[in-house]
Write a protein that binds this DNA or RNA. Structure first.
Lengths: 111, 111
DNA sequence: ACCATTACTCCAACAGATACAGTAAAAGAG
DNA sequence: CTCTTTTACTGTATCTGTTGGAGTAATGGT
């Protein structure tokens, strides 16, 4: 299990990575995150839904309602084109973050 | 340049990694972080010094004053044995964090 | 004598995460 | 056909770590 402190900076990246594949909604994403991380990361519901609101305000994602033939009506989210750009930027930043932190761990003196 | 949002969860890890090599103090660590990250990450002074206080309260590090033969007197920090344990735990957690996030980026469906 | 660098401290504000509580429709179990 | 569980959320108050901005003061260099 990783702490939410470790993941904090990357919740947006995770959400965008999942919405890159297909439009989705809170409950489903929540379960996907659990499954994909093999139970090692659980994004709290309040974290997830507040992230949706935050990202929608920034216009990285957009919501729409869809009445299902079965199940409760859900609020779906899709990535916007701006969101797609941000997603690519954030992926690159993640690569850089890894490099930086690994440098500290492997070669603390920077030599 | 990486954003502080990305690094937020790992400031403690970075500080501990540097103190693992040798005792140090704020101003020096700050410059080391800049140098080691090749200018791609700058930890703000207020972030660094408040981290020192936080980690000292948790007993992960301990401070002592040392009068220098030259330069201003500084507050040095050393890692405690508890800090060393935490450091190892956090290193492992970092490895796990990398695995999890890379899974989302490489294989979003989790198949 | 003056300015840059070194080495900090303090405080108010902010953003994102969390705990905790609550709502309500739909599906499944007896 | 009722009861429980699952699905799908919302609201609010609080916490933690980071930030911006200001300020202090000793030391080193020109």
């Amino acid at each position: 299990m990783v702490s939410s402190d470790s993941m904090r900076g990357f919740n947006d990246l995770i959400i965008l990575s999942l919405l890159d594949t297909e439009d989705s909604y809170g409950y489903k994403l929540s379960n996907q995150i659990k499954k994909i991380s093999k139970g090692n990361y659980v994004m709290k519901e309040t974290t997830l839904y507040s992230a949706f609101n935050r990202l929608e305000k920034k216009n990285w994602i957009a919501s729409y309602k869809r009445d299902e033939t079965f199940g409760k009506p859900r609020t779906y989210y899709r990535m916007t084109s701006l969101g797609r750009e941000i997603y690519h930027t954030k992926k690159k930043e993640w690569q850089e973050t890894q490099l930086i932190i690994n440098t500290f761990l492997e070669n603390p003196k920077g030599e």
